[in-house]
Design a protein around this nucleic acid. Structure first.
Lengths: 126, 126
DNA sequence: GTTGGCACTTACCAAAAAGTGCATACTGGA
DNA sequence: TCCAGTATGCACTTTTTGGTAAGTGCCAAC
């Protein structure tokens, strides 16, 4: 784990360039489980607006993390999938998913504590 | 890797509750390398404002991820370190750091491509 | 006719987040 | 005197982000 790396202060800084976006990690997670159509992805992620989901899908595509396959049909049929590059990132995200699963009740307690505090970050947010 | 988990759509969603914040992942990264004084942390992270760094340190402390030890001296001496809980998260972040290190030149290319595009996300950002 | 499915686009804007500038107090050096 | 070091608070400003609402066009079902 190198701490100096070109323009980045560390590898994590570089990863965050690609992953930074409210919904990008979850997009990656779901696509790591297989190709998805837009609507499937939308429903799996939950409370995200069309506008923002599409925006972040476009960014991920432009960055070479995901592929978009348009079948050119009506009604529209479009599929999203991870590129080979995106799959390397998906793999690197897996331990974080496992951590979240393992400590989900701790995290729920944190959320409750935030609500009670009604402080600088009261609501559930990321 | 479970995909349904209480209020979270997946473990990653839970992790992002704790990690969500522009500077939180990097704070974690640096503290995973050892206890740091405020100024050390500030300089290591780079271009972050005092106000926001302190704010996010406070949040991480409130969430039980980091500890703050005030020596009560003048000039002030304060140290930040990961809790045991925080160390589990730091460990889960390590693969992402490694990914970033491995693919840092790809990421640099992405940044350049974004600049050229002058599009929806032109500048280097996370 | 309306409504729903599919996958987007655009204009507008409110809220959230990050940042700036100034300040605190002590010590030492130029 | 000013500046630097240490770590943080507060008021205000700026930037960024996410969202809402309305819309596109085709087809099928009610």
């Amino acid at each position: 784990m190198d701490t100096t790396n070109g323009a980045f202060t560390c590898g994590l800084d570089a990863a965050l360039v690609v992953l930074g976006g409210k919904w990008k990690p979850l997009i990656l997670f779901h696509l790591a489980h297989g190709t998805r159509r837009y609507g499937e992805l939308r429903r799996a992620i939950g409370h995200v607006s069309d506008k923002v989901l599409i925006q972040q899908l476009k960014e991920l595509q432009a960055d070479g993390i995901i592929d978009r396959l348009d079948y050119g049909e009506i009604p529209p049929k479009v599929e999203y999938s991870l590129t080979a590059f995106g799959r390397t990132l998906g793999k690197a995200l897996a331990p974080l998913c496992e951590w979240g699963t393992k400590y989900s009740s701790n995290v729920e307690a944190i959320i409750e504590r935030r609500k009670v505090a009604e402080g600088p970050h009261a609501a559930w947010k990321r």
